[in-house]
Design a binder for these strands. Structure first.
Lengths: 228, 228, 228, 228
DNA sequence: GATGAATGAGCGTTCATTCAT
DNA sequence: AATGAATGAACGCTCATTCAT
């Protein structure tokens, strides 16, 4: 038990820990940071198209021209906000496991799922506005779509496939088509995150319980108790 | 068997059948219809903010001013497109069962789920562009949010709660909190629809199989086979 | 005498008469005409780059947006002013002489030169501002340069070469290289026009006399009287 | 012969020698020189209005602010380039003949003209870009116009009048109005320079021959050989 | 002296909306 | 009813100039 927890904890550390990207932020001037912050606020409130650079400048407390010193165009400002976050969204999937041996540091799929949900909920909570912008703009920004499809999704899929098949071999996951399993799992996870953070953010959530419930649903469904 | 199918069919008919809204369309002039069609195309391609009324007019083959004869503002045009579709999205939930007795016309939750998914997939396919617009604009249009929360979600929730609890009582659904069950179910359903129609529309889908698979996951999860 | 004058007159009519381009102007709305007029004034006063579309709009008495209904960009407005004038500048050279026989309707090179100078002085006087704009912008507008070199200069050169060699054969012009003769002639003609209209427009000119003097210089130079 | 050449040479030395303006250049820092050079390039490429000081700074390899240490405004930078060149353009006319006696060091007008053209061709070749800028900006810079009219043209005219009348008295130039003679001569000279350097710089020119031809045209015109 | 970040007025251009026809 | 010319506010963006370092 102790050991398991420790292993899980460690796995979580290695695996799920986010890129802190502190180096980046440190290179930024205070002005640049406030521009980004103002842009995040404005884009997420009004949408990219309807957000005026003049409003961003005003919120950031800089002259309008200053924005364009840092970002050549409004679109470049959008990408500067959204692309790094896209990378950080999938950070847990790209972290290399340097310790070798086993690439999947969790004993059970349930433990993995739970840790993943907890971690991504935390991440999403902290990056809510940017995620909102991302969701809004992906359909209209080919650059983003490309980035998403080519760099993000492919990596995630590859990784998740490995994990899923690992647990399938162990018999923890049933023998159904991996893509369907993945889609179903991700739907459930994202469904929870969206309901939790975007649809009903003001509801009184008990995250621990809900996550456990969701993981349980994913594993065993909502069907009536099976009698032996 | 025959009987079952017939019942299901009938249930579907009664329950799931869409509002045809013919009355509305009949009152429209051809010009108005082509304006709406052009607006749907343009809004879904570029987003509401970035769509120019002049482009809509051009696509519709009318003068720029004509649009504003029918819809006082661009926003009104948006609502004219999106609000009726919102109603039709939940049509299956608001149809009253006039035949009395039983409000839930399906014998099993699985059958209900499957029928529901088939039906909504069809609906979503036919209204893809409008749904895209809807998803995009809900965050920015308070009028839409209100409509959604007050008229749509509440009705759906109420209805789905009744259904869910009906099957819970029957023992077809386990005794977990109804909201969690609903959220999980809807996540899985919508997750499939989104993947199917928006994320990977070009993938070669076998809808019947996938839907059955998804329903099975919802009911029994993805866990390994439990040995007795 | 009578005959000569008549011939000259006729030649002038056929040859030198300008394109009136009335049809074009008639198709223009009063607003478009005032935009063009205001643009001509502003471009010639401040130069193309330094001219603000807002000033043009104000001078024309229209809203700024109106300019862009007629001309998609500021540069298009420039070309709309300058390209037709370029064509009209060389109109005398492209008019075909359908009467056949002789392609050069003047008996003497001196008469031709004089008629040409009178005619082009009149044209330049009437189109002074546009010519100013043209001279200013040719170095910076590749579109103009191309038009000039490919459509204008080549036609003019070809024609002038024919004329020059015609009079050379007649012994009216000495046997020097045609390009040098042409360059020298054109320099003298344009030199007069520039001095007359741009450099010293306020000087009290006797055009008839000056033109005759200039033609005489071109033909016989400024050298002292040769004693036999 | 010897004497003649010597005299001519000396005359040329005295008369035509340019202001070297070394004193000015020596006072300049390397930075200032590179700013001027970059400004000349940029102004002549894009025109004064369309040239950005930031581009000049970049080409010069200095910070944007540095330009404004040396020249308070962009216009001042323009004048710093163009005004000294204006002076040097007319240097041949303002050199005082300190030796007294004869103010015109050439025996023949033709020799004078030829020497003048050779010399100014050389000057124009070396200062082509600046001359381009000068021609472009004179219409829009009242300061330049004034300078040109009051300091330059008047001096040149005065001097050229003296020279012309000197040769008129000698019978080398015919008895026509001096202004007309001057205008005609200058037109022909400048016409050659423009054709040579701006209109057809890539043509294969034999300068010596062309200049002699031009001088001959100026003196004797292009008329057919007069038989006695 | 030299820098370059910061400014903000002004630019060319777009577009939802109006209204005379 | 339908048009489309006209509007003008607002947009994204540029750039000459300033000034703290």
């Amino acid at each position: 038990m102790e050991k398991d927890n420790a292993a899980e904890q460690q796995g979580q550390e290695q695996w799920i820990q986010e890129l802190l990207a502190l180096s980046e932020k440190e290179q930024m001037t205070p002005k640049q940071i406030s521009i980004l912050q103002a842009a995040i606020d404005t884009f997420s409130e009004k949408g990219f198209s309807a957000a005026a650079t003049s409003e961003i400048a005003q919120k950031a407390g800089v002259a309008e021209g200053t924005i364009f010193r840092y970002y050549k165009t409004k679109k470049e400002l959008l990408l500067a906000i959204v692309v790094p976050t896209m990378s950080r969204m999938i950070a847990p999937f790209v972290m290399r496991n340097f310790s070798g041996v086993l690439d999947v540091p969790f004993e059970s799929y349930e433990a993995f799922l739970k840790a993943f949900m907890v971690n991504r909920l935390d991440f999403a909570r902290k990056n809510l506005k940017i995620i909102r912008i991302l969701i809004q703009e992906i359909p209209f920004q080919p650059a983003l779509r490309e980035q998403l499809v080519e760099n993000i999704l492919s990596q995630v899929l590859e990784r998740v496939t490995v994990i899923t098949e690992h647990f399938k071999e162990q018999g923890q996951i049933m023998d159904a088509p991996t893509p369907a399993i993945i889609r179903f799992t991700i739907s459930s996870v994202i469904g929870y995150l969206l309901a939790r953070l975007l649809l009903m953010p003001d509801h009184d959530w008990n995250d621990e319980e809900e996550i456990e419930q969701t993981v349980s649903f994913i594993m065993h469904g909502i069907g009536g108790v099976r009698t032996l």
